[in-house]
Amino acid sequence: MAEPSTFIFISGGVRSGKSTFAEELAAEVAQQSGSQLHYIAAGQANDPEMKERIEKHKKDRLKSGLKWRTWEQPRNLAEIASSFSAKDVVLFDCLTTLVNNELFQAGEQWEDPRFQRCMIESISEGIRQIKGRCQTLIVVSNEVLNEPIGSSELVFTYSKLMGVLHQEMAREANQAFLVEAGIPAAMKGGEKS
């Protein structure tokens, strides 16, 4: 059984099976400890494709027969931190989307290094607060740093911020997994649970 306030970081490529693995892991922990499952979705349904994607994920969670409580939180994670308690297993999907949302609402500000630092700090703080309250927090993110960054200042900034955040996640995590083609490789913290 997982220790109280376990923090797990999971990353992988697009369609690598990282969300499925994260959901299974969350369900396993919740079952062992009789905890409530929570799902924090950062995705916003801005277009039909996104809507479909979100619906598919919702259906999958329903099909699993487990009782997930879903929170739609495209920004500002700290806002909902007080909703969780020591009997909760929280899955957050996903960090790249959250950073997208925070950056896009910022207008021109994104270029300001002070804004960038504040944004990273506020995301880290939100995660810390949720982690501090719940039994297990699982954070899912995307592998986006294995291709040329190119010459766009925005993409460069985004990549740098993702790298900083992911390094922090890996440092703070009790367990960290890289999912390749559906297979989770334990990069930190050994066994699955």
Binding site: E143, L145, G163, Q167
Partner: peptide, 12 residues
């Protein structure tokens, strides 16, 4: 000779 690789901004 030691070769260190990984994605960008990964702390190499």
């Amino acid at each position: 000779m030691h070769f260190v690789t990984g994605g960008a901004f990964n702390g190499k």
